[in-house]
Design a protein around this nucleic acid. Structure first.
Ligand code: FES
Ligand code: FES
Lengths: 145, 145
DNA sequence: ATAATAAAAGACAAAAGTATCTTCTATTAT
DNA sequence: ATAATAGAAGATACTTTTGTCTTTTATTAT
């Protein structure tokens, strides 16, 4: 099992792509994004519409329209994207699938797993949407499958 | 998304259950296990048959038959269970779904994620199947959904 | 031998996730 | 007005995961 759903992988890659493409203004179309991150265009469109509805990214209709990210949104943590797509079970759920992760009735892995879960949460809370713009422009990081 | 598949959650809970029930000899039947960890009996049966085929647990047919775990198997790491059920993508796969996680063509999350991934791997490599037998017998840990 | 018990196996079914296609509407640059 | 682009909605399909049902086989107490 991967740590994120496929939908969430597409979402994160797309958001990084949009961020670094529009950090200095402009918009980027769905075709461009789908090609840039190698993902099924129409499926990605649905995902981005959802993220747009939730205010995590912005869009503009009409010619030269497309998706973009508000400068202020560039500092949003990646955890918001993950939570919007995959929910928060990665941050708060029990590793062994107990209905409720709790200190009073923990599963055997609780203590060790909680520490790891918190690290994941911290990573995604402190990583921002626009954090890798420079590296992405320099081609140091890849978003292509 | 949870960190393990539902199948893997059942598998781990069942293995812990069998381990602490049969650490001092004896066998435990599928009905008992399914009740003990609150899981669909027939689905769990398939999972356990698979683990048995792979030698991670043992079984005995006939009256008073059932599943058990060899004393030597109690010291096997939990990672073997996880790998048998969910594969190794949790340990080696790219967080953002790139075909290949690599240093030369990394995704933006590669560095930070690799550290977390390694912690998960270490946790599962150092946690053994029989590690929680005492706590489970004392009711300190729960395996029930 | 027989009956009881449980594992094993295969077919099937339901649900969720992933993906595609089509149609229509809204917006805006030209 | 026209063309370009995204939003929205709904139908459909494919795949994987999860779960159920039925039958067969193996073992052993009696
Ligand atoms: S109870 Fe399982 S992780 Fe907390
Ligand atoms: S390339 Fe994505 S985690 Fe290594």
């Amino acid at each position: 099992m991967a740590i994120f759903s496929k939908t969430c992988e597409y979402a994160i890659r797309a958001v990084f792509y949009i961020a670094h493409k529009t950090a200095n203004g402009g918009r980027v179309g769905i075709k461009d994004i789908a090609t840039g991150i190698v993902s099924p265009e129409l499926y990605l469109a649905k995902i981005l519409q959802d993220l747009s509805r939730k205010g995590l990214i912005s869009s503009y209709k009409g010619p030269n329209g497309g998706f973009f990210i508000e400068p202020t949104s560039l500092s949003k943590p990646l955890s918001e994207i993950v939570e919007a797509v995959d929910g928060d079970s990665l941050f708060y759920g029990c590793a062994l699938g107990l209905k409720q992760c709790s200190e009073v009735n923990p599963c055997p892995l609780h203590n060790d797993f909680k520490a790891i879960r918190d690290k994941i949460h911290l990573l995604l809370n402190t990583t921002t949407v626009g954090e890798f713009n420079n590296e992405l422009m320099n081609g140091l990081f890849s978003l292509k499958k």
